[in-house]
Design a binder for these strands. Structure first.
Length: 638
DNA sequence: GACGAGACTTGGAATAATTTTG
DNA sequence: CAAAATTATTCCAAGTCTCGTC
């Protein structure tokens, strides 16, 4: 029994329940007169509107709550080790498979069929995904069929051959019913479930690192499932259940070593203070040297320290950036082909914030590229009538997100592209003399710790800071300032090409805009008709009055057409706004101290910008940044 | 330095929680 | 008050990059 003494839950929470309530602002007019954009508004529950939170904690609370360690106020240590003491209780395993009730039947070729437990378990995974996007894809189906057949009995394998002849409907309906039941539980039952969850989190969700209790990010091992890769050839494969025997535990020698679930043993136990992970197991899909790790939460001291280090490296880049830019500009125009390619690559990484683009194994993975792996067909050179030169980009980046951009470039860059693309054709690497490792080695020589991804961090953070400077009106209302923040944030997100799907969103704003456009189109048609009538009348008898009528009607029509164009512009703006994800840049690319300083300076409560989880993650920045903090300013110790 | 194992960061989708709406 | 809409968080896939080894 895997789980008898290690209860498992369906959900854990990483954030504290600070009790923030949010509501949406009423549609507000934009002061810059652009589209009527709405911004989420965050309302803090109490009166704790001061940016320095924690100041108002009651004395009783202080006694019980361990004082937060202010590691950012301690001197830096060059210690290589990540910890000297690490103790935890090991991960929680997925609940054991619960067989389907007797009355839930699987049918093959219309005939009811009893499946063996293993085959049934894998079948239920598929049934649960029946109305998912990916399960429609043929690769998904093919991979699932192959892996499913592997767990079937000889007899089952003989019968079940075609997925199309399988009927999972009853199984699928059964799980929907279970979901429904869960939703309709009584309040008491819900509370009890919550408490159970909390107890498990309390035991397994935390660890002790050097005397401090720290939250663990993923203390539950991934349950068995069907692989949901994006654009991967392996989607639909069965991801097997992880057993304690698959798991390696990492903790200190002198800690209480976690006990494996009864009847089981850990695969192995190690005590490596150079590693940040608490447990790991081999990735069942990728296999080989790829592992899944249990690590500390983003809000832990260790991750905070790593985050701060990342931003300080990006800030160090600021003092080198002119030199680096001058150099790559020189290289772009220079003679050598390698340096020319590297110069152009640097230009793309710096200006367009492209990812470096490591080589990856062909076939297995989706055909996505980064800077160094761009191919001939991803780029088009355009010279337009006005003499302006453009380069258009069209390729799939990380997670198969499309990158489309049209950039106007100087002659020198255009020429360099022409030279680089000479004698190349579809399928050829754009920078055939270059790869990610070579480019990073080059950067490493320019500045210690400099790699291609630092440019993304640097430029995103710089964008935020610049745009905040530019857009914030000191005399404005809080709402206006917050809107300015969102626009600055959006600038960074746009740079990083952070997208989100909008397929199912047909929100009211969009709907009303659409109906407005339709109405306008109708009005235009009517106006066209009346114009034609007026023109005809003028044809019959060419009086000056009739001529002015025609002119008037023309004017009206033109005005309507212009209004429609305006609405269409608004529509694209709105669509574009919806397709941008702001949260990714906020968490990974924007130095939180920029935000904190801005909040302090403009007296905006931090809760209006950061979610409760973000407040926990960025506590170091909230404490350490004064209103004078500048990302491009002097670097403090650390 | 090239290579590959492996560890750590980043990212959109799924899902849970909360708020608004009808 | 339930359902719909919206926001926040979790999940886990897919990148980047380091480091040890030859």
């Amino acid at each position: 029994m895997v789980t008898d003494e290690r209860p498992s839950t369906s959900q854990g929470r990483e954030s504290s329940s600070t009790g923030q309530k949010r509501r949406k602002l009423n549609d507000e007019e934009n002061d810059d007169g652009s589209n009527g954009e709405t911004i989420p508004k965050k309302k803090s529950k109490g009166e704790k509107n001061d940016v320095n939170r924690g100041a108002s904690t009651s004395k009783e609370e202080k006694k019980n709550v361990e004082e937060r360690r202010k590691w950012w106020k301690e001197g830096k240590s060059d210690n290589r080790a990540r910890w000297t003491f690490l103790e935890h209780n090991g991960p929680v395993f997925a609940p054991e498979y619960e067989p389907l009730p007797k009355d839930v039947t699987f049918y093959y070729d219309e005939n009811p069929m009893m499946l063996s437990p293993r085959a049934e378990e894998v079948a239920t995974l598929y049934a649960k995904m029946l109305n998912h996007q990916s399960s429609v894809k043929s690769v998904f189906k093919r991979n699932f069929r192959t892996d499913w057949r592997k767990v079937m009995t000889e007899k089952e394998r003989k019968i079940i051959k075609e997925l199309e002849m399988c009927n999972f409907q009853e199984i699928s309906a059964h799980f929907m019913k279970v979901e429904e039941k869960k939703k309709n539980m009584s309040e008491d039952e819900k509370v009890e479930l919550q408490n159970e969850k909390k107890a498990i989190e309390e035991k397994y969700g935390f660890c002790i690192v050097d005397g401090r209790r720290q939250r663990i990010k993923n203390y539950k091992v991934e349950p068995p499932g069907l692989f949901r890769g994006r654009g991967r050839k392996v989607m639909g494969k069965f991801k097997a259940r992880i057993m304690p025997e698959d798991v390696t535990i990492n903790c200190s020698k002198d800690s209480k070593i976690p006990t494996a679930p009864s009847g089981h043993k850990w695969g192995s136990v190690c005590h490596d203070p150079n590693e940040t992970w608490l447990a790991r197991w081999k990735d069942p899909i990728r296999g080989g040297n790829c592992y899944k790790y249990v690590t500390l939460s983003h809000s832990s001291d260790l991750k905070g320290q790593m985050d701060l280090r990342k931003y300080e490296t990006a800030r160090r880049l600021h003092s080198k950036i002119d030199e680096i830019r001058n150099k790559y500009w020189e290289h772009i125009q220079g003679e050598g082909m390698l340096t020319k390619q590297r110069g152009v690559a640097m230009y793309l990484i710096d200006k367009l914030a492209l990812r470096v683009g490591n080589e990856k194994e062909k076939g297995e993975t989706a055909d996505t590229v980064g800077c160094c792996t761009l191919r001939f067909q991803h780029i088009k050179l355009r010279e337009e009538r006005d003499g302006m030169k453009y380069i258009t980009f069209n390729f799939l980046g990380k997670d198969s997100v499309p990158y489309r951009n049209k950039v106007s470039v100087k002659d020198g860059v255009f020429k360099a592209f022409q030279l680089i693309m000479e004698n190349k054709r579809k399928g050829d690497k754009l920078f055939h003399l270059l790869d990610a490792a070579e480019l990073n080695r080059y950067l490493q020589r320019k500045m210690k710790g400099l790699t291609a991804k630092v440019f993304r961090t640097y430029n995103a953070s710089m964008t935020l800071q610049k745009k905040l400077d530019e857009l914030t009106v000191s005399a404005g209302t809080d709402e206006e300032k917050i809107l300015a923040y969102y626009q600055a944030n959006k600038g960074a997100a746009l740079l990083c090409n952070h997208q989100r799907s909008t397929s199912k969103n047909d929100d009211n704003a969009m709907k009303s805009l659409k109906s407005k456009i339709q109405k306008k189109a109708k009005a235009i048609k009517d106006a066209e008709k009346t114009l034609k009538r007026a023109e005809k009348a003028y044809e019959v008898s060419k009086t000056p009055e009739k001529k002015t009528i025609v002119k008037e009607k023309k004017k009206i029509l033109e005005k309507l057409r212009e209004e429609k164009r305006e609405l269409l512009r608004e529509e694209t703006l709105m669509k574009k706004g919806k397709e941008i994800a702001l949260n990714v840049s906020k968490i990974y690319y924007l130095d939180p101290r920029i935000t904190v300083a801005w909040c302090k300076k403009h007296r905006i409560p931090i809760e209006k910008i950061f979610t409760p989880a973000e407040i926990e993650i960025f506590d170091w920045a909230i404490d350490m940044a004064t209103q004078d903090f500048r990302f491009d300013g002097l670097i403090n110790s650390v």
